[in-house]
Design a protein around this nucleic acid. Structure first.
Lengths: 201, 201
DNA sequence: GTCTATAGATAGATAGAC
DNA sequence: GTCTATCTATCTATAGAC
């Protein structure tokens, strides 16, 4: 058959990323075939190559889009405030953003190993950029005496791991609301950097 | 060729788990072929089937052995002590144990999705058993007033994620000694449960 | 217990029609 | 832009020799 009636390339290209992300997150990059992705999109496998040169580039495109969106979302959120408020803002932002995109988050943590040289370097760089957001907040707060942190780098990695870990147990129909979860984690994060009371509500 | 001179089945069976673990951790379960595992062990692919009925059972055996060893190691360590000391002991234990087995740890977090029904249930049960270790320490410490924790379940998951996250950045030739890392994390964990000073040194 | 050989399925990717 | 058809490679797993 020739082109489907009403088929639009950009729609298919986008659907490949969406469905690929779901499938890769669920079964793993290596375990998912081009035919599976194509079936989820509603085209034949060969049609995918019109939009991406190979399977690897689909993964790179998914992770790239995720990291760009994450960095952009934080840029839109950030404002001038004291260290404690900035940390609280960051905790809320990270939890909210990551909870709402479980597949992208899981992929970007689990499938780094499936990236080949160039793709890996690009994604890794963006990950470091995001990590440095947390690190900078902690360093400023430590320098101005707000936080008691011996090692801002380790503290940033510890806090990020703790926050991202929400995704391993969070269920939208679970016992706790997202709001409540944010409060619990803010309490723990503030405690971990030496603050006992929440800075401002 | 017939049996290799000096070949011993139990040695091969063990080597399949060791090499399989390394390969699965590095490339992912689905991406690793029986031929790759066999080559690492030094036999032909078909020899593997003398020891494990299929690829899936290799993964199950690796994860099972890891979880059993982890639970046993904690059982050997645990003793009667107050909540703060127990939490400190747990933090040190978890970091030390997980840092020394990066491949097993990575596998047991990343490849749960590659487990089929029965294997998944078995491993998941053991993981819950381990999580309940942390949860029980936090609950007791909260009940006797040592800790300020609003939700022991969430706190346990948060602390476990934070501690396990060490594996994502730790390098044995890095800037920080294992001892120093333990101290840093103990400080953060104690802070996160509302304790400011280290309980005992 | 391990080998060689191979069956049978499925993978990523391409060619050419429409 | 998508299709059908197909190439070539590789996979898991088994059969049977030693």
């Amino acid at each position: 058959m020739a082109r489907k009636v009403g088929s639009v390339g950009s729609v298919t290209a986008e659907a490949i990323l969406t469905e690929g992300c779901k499938l890769f997150a669920r079964f793993g990059y290596a375990a998912v075939s081009m035919r599976q992705i194509a079936a989820a999109v509603g085209v034949q496998a060969s049609a995918i190559y019109q939009h991406y040169p190979n399977k690897q580039e689909i993964l790179v495109a998914i992770l790239n889009a995720h990291m760009d969106a994450l960095l952009k979302a934080w840029d839109d959120e950030v404002c001038d405030e004291d260290a404690a408020a900035a940390l609280e803002r960051f905790v809320r932002f990270h939890i909210r953003y990551h909870i709402s995109r479980p597949d992208e988050v899981f992929l970007s943590y689990m499938e780094l190993r499936s990236l080949e040289d160039q793709g890996f370097r690009i994604i890794e760089r963006k990950r470091h950029t995001y990590e440095s957001v947390a690190k900078t907040i902690l360093r400023h707060g430590t320098e101005d005496g707000t936080f008691s942190v011996s090692d801002p780098h380790v503290a940033a990695m510890a806090i990020l791991a703790m926050l991202t870990g929400v995704n391993t147990w969070y269920r939208s129909d679970g016992r706790l609301s997202q709001q409540k979860i944010e409060e619990l984690y803010i309490g723990m994060v503030m405690g971990s950097v030496g603050l006992t009371a929440a800075p401002k509500e």
